[in-house]
Amino acid sequence: MLRHILSRLVRSFLTLMLVMTFAFLVLRLSGDPALILLGPDAPQDAINAFRERWGLNDPIWKQYLAYLVQLLTLEFGVSMRDQVPALDLVLSRIPATLAITLPALLLKVGLGIPAGVYAALHRQSIADRGVITLSILGFTVPSFVLGLLLVLVFAVQLGWLPSGGQEGVEHALLPILTLSVGGIGIMARFARSAMIEVLGQPYIRTAMAKGLSWRSVVWKHALPNAAVPIVTLLGFMIGSLIAGAAVVESIFSWPGVGRLIVTAVANRDLAVVQALLLVIASSMIVANFLVDLAYGLLDPRLRSRRAAH
């Protein structure tokens, strides 16, 4: 087990390096970053200054080495706009983002999974149809539409909640709601089908044939098995805790990482863009790592396969 964790850690690090190298290649090779970031209409001396500042006139291998050094020392330079170290800027935005994405994740898990499981246990019932319909609605309505709709109803019409800003809990409610609705729907659908799949397995019939109560069959045999696929989706959701709220943060002018992505790109702030990439890629890789650990805990078959390697 420990060996597996170590090898996973090494692999995670390599993946991160690979992702960052890929980002480097995309940024440097898909065209002139100066032109991409400054735009085609930028004056020549601005472009030259930009090239000079970011070492874009050096040979590509030298640029890559410099980039690697930046990554490993976590020194991306200073944000052009805010004049603070880029990584500090990015990190300072994380709490605000988590303040809405974490509650949203809790809602996705806390409402989505029970709703899906309940629907699976009462298939074809009104509740099941209700869950299916709501979840389809939940994940087909785009978040910018939903966000605007919620603002319209709760802020403009009813005046119950503010439409933007970050002073207190009431400011966070609409962003959290907007963020979670789609995820609750997806989670409910996923939990429902995972549960239906498990309930059709022979070992469930065995558990019933033993004389266990339906409650025990569900809690002790069905749910632990359905947890394995559900954790996969949970991993995706954890992976998007940091970068997944860009649209919602923009709608509600919420000062989180997502909005920083938008402004950094708009301001051609290369140092911040690179720091963002590292943080986002790391958060996804950490999520992956956690899912992998959870798999091992939930499924003994995987554990033995790993032990065999």
Binding site: Q201, Y203, T206, A209, P224, N225, L298
Partner: peptide
């Protein structure tokens, strides 16, 4: 008591 055709999948794999 009842036992079934496919013994490997008739036991709960995670218990």
């Amino acid at each position: 008591a009842m036992i079934f055709q496919d013994p490997s999948s008739s036991l709960n794999p995670v218990q």
